[in-house]
Nucleic acid binder design. Structure first.
Length: 553
RNA sequence: GGUGAUGUAGCUCAGCUGGUUAGAGCGCAGGAUUCAUAAUCCUGAGGUCGAGAGUUCAAGUCUCUCCAUCACCA
């Protein structure tokens, strides 16, 4: 039994959860459930990422304090995750006392290890608002193509990148006034000194190959020191012994993983150090989007290494979600919020299954094709999978009073073979789950499902039912329908990490609970009355969902 | 602009270190069947593997050029 601490990236407390976020949470949740079903002890930890300028300004705009905004968003996020069956052991906040103390203590250790230095830099400053401006809060005319209203770091029209100081006619997004240049003292993490350590660590197998390659580019360019401070006003933690200076949000965000876990440990009497001390034997696994690879594969391990904590065991980066082959877009209605899906399509298992059927261990983007979604669900889950009990349980009820034959009672070689093949897949199933090769696993499982339907077609139980003596226990009819249902049960166990809602109903149909893959080795003796467990997806619901998300320009 | 990826049937995707007539699911056409939520099963049509050149006895699989799409640039 392994001990594993798993995290998903912290959602920013500035907006709603959308389907792009859910690719990650669903992938992680499936992985966590599968590891538990394989017998490992797993803690799944997350938190809202609360600090930074965007949250501060958004709160101001909504006439509330940052704390109020943060708790409002936290409630929304919690409900979204819960309704998608993403079950964290702890969903906390980076704006917590635990996080403050940990951030301060890590910072102090970095200082004592001589990894922090002060430098004076020059930044844009909004004179009216009395604050320094991050790049994305400065707009102006592109120095290259002269397109107006472009951000301070790159031009969306011609694609040029430049420094905000190159902008023609720069203005502050907040006040609209022209920013002035002002000197300020900032704190830097000396990342350039960590190059040897990081070069080695990033090529050590913790990362996917593609991710490691991607990082080589950055090493080639040379690592620059990392600015970890921001000037007041800033929503965040004040740096010890540095009045008016705050930790940059990306310093305390990953520490939020630790803080959330610490909070969980205190509530549940778990040993925090067993998971975070330098000599920890537990695994630490981070699921992230490829956009934040830089932070998790460079800053974060460097921070941990030089503040005397353990390092991540694995970092799993995934790609982005596209919808109908294109980037998600508010005007096309494909910036789909989690809530709008729950309000229209409703069943979380369907999206979970769709993502499952397409996910793998690469950083490639994943496309949600809505027509494909509808046909995949209706064909795979309704037409083939749930059709198995639907087409066989009637015979068991009518002729055998809900009693099933168990595996050791089967007499036909064909019947035994049907179930044996499916049972023999268990190691492959576990391996595919572990390796995050979900689409390959999906194909394996669908093959099993098709083999059961094929078996039923060939055996024609509806023909047998009209013959004499087939209503006797252990008849061919009894054996065929029992084999189909025993097979269905095993397949359901395999799918239970993906389809928690549906397989919960299925386990109740068999009068049990699915908690461990080892349960495949027993046969059940009875079923309950079969009721429809899954509805087809109607295109209307998907259309409504798009309508809900369509923002008119 | 720099760097990295991707481009395989109408759609979504498999194709490991190069090796027999390029695969799956959906969709489509035809057939079988009626137990089942118009579900299931069988058969079939559909691809000069982005374009061009090269290496090789042999390339979707290696090399180069070009085109298109996407991401990242702290």
């Amino acid at each position: 039994m392994k001990k594993i601490l798993v995290t998903s990236a912290l959602p920013y407390a500035n907006g709603s959860i959308h389907l792009g976020h859910l690719v990650e949470y669903i992938q992680t949740d499936i992985w966590v459930r599968a590891q538990r079903m394989s017998g490992h002890q797993v803690y799944y930890i997350c938190a809202d990422d609360t600090h930074g300028t965007p949250v501060m300004l958004r709160a101001e705009k909504e006439n509330m304090s940052p704390d109020q905004l943060v708790s409002k968003v936290h409630a929304e996020h919690s409900a979204d995750f819960n309704d998608f069956q993403v079950k964290f052991d702890n969903f906390y906040s980076t704006n917590s006392n635990e996080n403050k103390l940990l951030s301060e203590s890590i910072y102090k250790t970095l200082v004592s290890n001589n990894k922090i230095e002060k430098k004076e830099i020059e930044q844009f400053y909004d004179d009216q608002k009395n604050m320094f401006l991050p790049d994305r809060f400065i707009k102006g005319t592109c120095p290259k193509c002269k397109a107006e209203d472009q951000y301070g770091d790159s031009c969306e029209v011609c694609g040029a990148t430049y420094s905000s100081t190159d902008l023609i006619k720069p203005f502050s997004v907040i006040s609209g006034t022209e920013p002035i240049r002002k000197k300020t003292e900032h704190y830097f993490f000396k990342l350039s000194e960590c190059e040897d350590f990081l070069t080695q660590w990033t090529q050590s197998g913790t990362l996917q190959k593609e991710a490691a390659n991607k990082l080589k580019e950055w090493f080639k360019a040379g690592l620059a020191d990392w600015d970890i401070s921001r000037d007041a006003p800033y929503f965040g933690f004040e740096i010890p012994d540095a009045p008016g200076k705050f930790f940059y949000v990306w310093l305390d965000a990953p520490i939020g993983y630790m803080a959330s876990f610490q909070n969980f440990c205190e509530k549940n009497n778990i040993n925090f150090d067993e998971f975070w001390s330098k000599d920890s034997e537990a695994e630490l696994v981070h699921f992230i989007g490829k956009d934040i690879l830089y932070f998790h594969a460079l800053f974060w391990p460097a921070t941990l290494e030089f503040s005397n904590y353990r390092l991540p065991s694995k970092i799993f980066a995934h790609g982005f979600l596209t919808v109908n082959g294109e980037k998600m877009s508010k005007s096309r209605g494909t910036f789909i919020t989690a809530r709008s899906y729950l309000d229209t399509v409703k069943d979380p298992d369907l999206l979970r299954y769709y993502f499952f059927s397409k996910l793998n261990d690469s950083m490639e983007d994943l496309d949600l094709n809505l027509d494909d979604f509808i046909s995949k669900i209706n064909s795979d889950l309704v037409g083939k999978f749930i059709n198995i009990p639907s087409r066989t349980s009637g015979f068991i009820k009518k002729y055998f009073d809900y009693n099933l034959m168990t595996k050791d009672q089967f007499t036909s070689d064909e019947t035994k073979a049907l179930l044996d093949v499916i049972l023999s897949n268990v190691d492959e199933v576990k391996k595919y789950y572990h390796d995050r090769e979900f689409s390959k696993l999906n194909r394996l499982i669908m093959n099993s499902i098709e083999s059961v339907n094929e078996f039923i077609n060939n055996k024609e139980p509806w023909v047998l039912a009209k013959q004499d003596n087939q209503d006797q226990p252990n008849s061919d009819l009894h054996e065929i329908c029992s084999a189909a249902l025993q097979s269905f049960r095993v397949i359901s166990l395999y799918l239970s990490p993906v389809l928690p809602v549906l397989t919960h109903k299925i386990s109740a149909f068999f009068d049990e609970e699915f908690t461990h893959f080892d349960q495949i080795h027993i046969s059940v003796k009875k079923i309950n009355q079969y009721e429809h467990m899954l509805k087809r997806v109607e295109k209307d619901f998907v259309d409504q969902m798009i309508e809900l998300n369509t923002v008119k320009d």
